[in-house]
Structure formats: C-alpha cells, structure tokens
Amino acid sequence: MILLSDKLWFPPVETASSEGVLAFGGDLSPERLLLAYNSGIFPWFNKGEPVVWYSPGERMVLFPNELKISKSMKQILKKDSFKVTFNQNFKEVIRSCKTIYREGQGGTWITDEMEQAYTKLNELGHAKSVEVWLGNELVGGLYGIDLGDVFCGESMFSAVSNASKVAFIHLVQKLKRENYKLIDCQVYNDHLASLGAREIPRNEFLRYL
C-alpha cells in the first residue's frame, strides 16, 4: 500500500485494494482534498490513525431525477414544519455531525483535524452545508464538497426524526434545478438506497467527474 509524502499526488485509483483502500498518509490541505475529490478519492479514518484514502470499486451515487420520496415523507414536507437554509451555518452543521450520538457506533470519524480541514474548504467556497431548523433551533443538516456539477456528500445528522432526510431531499431538489450530474454518497447504506441512491462502477463514476 502506498504511503504518501508531502508531494501532491495520488496513485491510480485502479490500484486500490478490494476494500477500496488506495493510500495512507499525506495531509488534509485544501489542495490535496480537492485533488482527491476530483479524482474520485476521499479520506476516511479514525482518531489517532494516519489519513486513509479510499476509492471503492463500486460507488454509491444518487442521480437527482431518481430521488425517491416516500408517502410519509411527502406528508412531512407538506406540513412545512421545518425551515431549510443553504450554507448559512457550516461550522455548526459539521460540529453536530461530529458530536451527535449514533446508535451502534463507538465514536465519530470526524476528527478535529477533519473538522478544521473542511471548515477551511467552506471558507474557500468548496464545502457547503444544508441546515434544517425547527423554530430557531438547528435540528438537522448535512455537508459536503461542491465540485460545480457533482456534490460529494460527507455526513448528515438529525436531532429530531426525519430532519436529515429533509436536508437531503431539499439538497437534491436544488441540485436538480441547477443541473448537477449526481450526488456522490460514497458507500452503500440502506438509508440512502431508500432515497434512490444506487451503486455504479468506479470507472463510470470517474467519467461523471
């Protein structure tokens, strides 16, 4: 497995392991992160570990016109109980994604280093957030990297039921209006599949980038 140095470079994604691991090390500078995302690569590691870079063979994505909204979610959206904003409180969203309790997980993969790195990307205009409010309280949201016509989702949170789904649905609808090609969801999970996301081969994903 490749150990990265200070050089701004990644090995070919085809050399990733069967688990999708491509390389270790390097840093989380804005330049390296943007190179990674534009190359179909993302970091994912735990506190105390070196940075691990992934490029899985199958990529979970959502094409905006394939969004599925259940009948119950349509009713929730129709009630209009939540207010949704875009990129108005990135720092609070990433902090909430980092600290919120997740059943079955021992901790968070959003380390202090990652929080600082993505906040810097937000300040540079490359990372964006969606906020969901109940009254004046932030109760849900998500954040990710905006590549211009592809949005790479990173994490979401809900402090009340369905708040993260509301954030995701509003994001997809907004990106559809703006003719984005797809939303990168990275790896499979049932929650995203229920919303219409599906896996495509890495080489197909790279063509969209």
Rank of each mutant, 00 (worst) to 15 (best):
W109Q: 08
L28E: 09
E49Y: 09
G196W: 07
L147T: 07
G48R: 08
G196P: 12
G141R: 12
Y143S: 04
L33I: 04
A127S: 15
D184W: 00
H126K: 15
D27G: 07
V13P: 01
V132Y: 13
Y208I: 00
S70F: 11
E123D: 14
A16L: 03
W44L: 06
K176I: 00
V93W: 06
A163T: 09
G153Q: 05
S161Q: 14
S17W: 03
I2R: 14
I200Q: 08
P30C: 05
G144K: 11
E66H: 13
S5T: 15
K128I: 09
C97D: 10
K174G: 01
D6S: 15
W44Y: 06
M156Y: 11
E14T: 10
S55Q: 06
A167Q: 11
L8S: 02
S161W: 01
L28W: 06
I41W: 12
L28H: 06
P11T: 00
R59F: 07
G26N: 08
V187E: 11
I100N: 14
G104E: 12
R198C: 08
S70V: 08
W53A: 05
G148D: 01
K128S: 04
E103Y: 10
T85R: 13
H126P: 01
I69S: 06
K128M: 11
S194D: 13
F205K: 00
V52L: 11
L124E: 13
S29C: 04
E113P: 03
L142F: 13
